[in-house]
Amino acid sequence: MGVMRIGHINVKVMDMAAALQHYEKVLGMKTVHTDADGNAYLKCWDEWDKYSLILTETDQAGLNHVAYKVEKETDLDELQQRIEASGTATEMLPEGTMPFTGRLLKFNLPSGHEMRLYATKECVGTDVGSTNPDPWPDDIKGAGVHWLDHCLLMCELNPAAGINKVAESTDFMMNVLDFNMAERVMVGPNGDIPAATWLFRTSTPHDIAFVGGERMGLHHFAFFLNDWSAILKSADVMAKNKVKIDVAPTRHGITRGETIYFFDPSGNRNETFAGLGYMAQPDRPVITWTEDQLWRGIFFHSGEESGSFTTAYT
């Protein structure tokens, strides 16, 4: 009932050939479709629906939209009413608007990011199938990422001006779309300003995260790997392909994930993310990170800001 998981992300790239090389050879995704407008649709080997990444070539980088899959078609009608009732305008895009995909409920989060919900997408199965499957397929390229795992959206945060789109978008996701909170960062003199949140509908600590910044944008989208050794191998793959690594392999305190941040050829930040963290449940106590331990939460080993985490995003 309701939202199940992240379904796909549509990102802008400035050089399609370079982007395809990156997502196919470095991440190990496969291109499954190219539409009449030249958008490329890609899939990870362990996903069963037709695609999870759409690349759109244009004159800039960044997010077009992120979509979450709901369980039933009737959920779309129910959620449309709830979203409208919350004061947010929606549009129901008819089946066929996106290939292999049913109706899409389109709206903007309070932060301004476009989100879509859908219930139906062509199921093609994982690359190992569903009958007596092998644990992994023989034709894995590069990092061999399993699935699109989550995204982190930067939201405008300016407490002096009374703007906190992290708080507004978090409230929307929790109150209207029934997301649960796993972790949060609270800052300010009284520790009462939500500066970042991690929310889930699956049983892992986050399916979406919001972090405060000076403007809205796409901070990163992440792909799942099993464990630390897979993370280290993905770093080897990045080095072999001269990929710009933003933050070398480390662990997040928040979500307990093992991680690498790196950039695609248009400057969109990717993450390979390993580990299921802990069992996220609606009744599990919310974890709070305080301002003085914020960077320990983000990069557990160093406890310091690394790379261009808060400054560079698309």
């Binding site: 980088a61 960044g62 050829p265 400057g267 560079a312 698309t314």
Partner: peptide, 12 residues
């Protein structure tokens, strides 16, 4: 010069 994505996308 501020350093970001090195790939023309982030503008820093």
């Amino acid at each position: 010069i501020p350093v970001g994505c090195l790939n023309g996308g982030c503008g820093v």
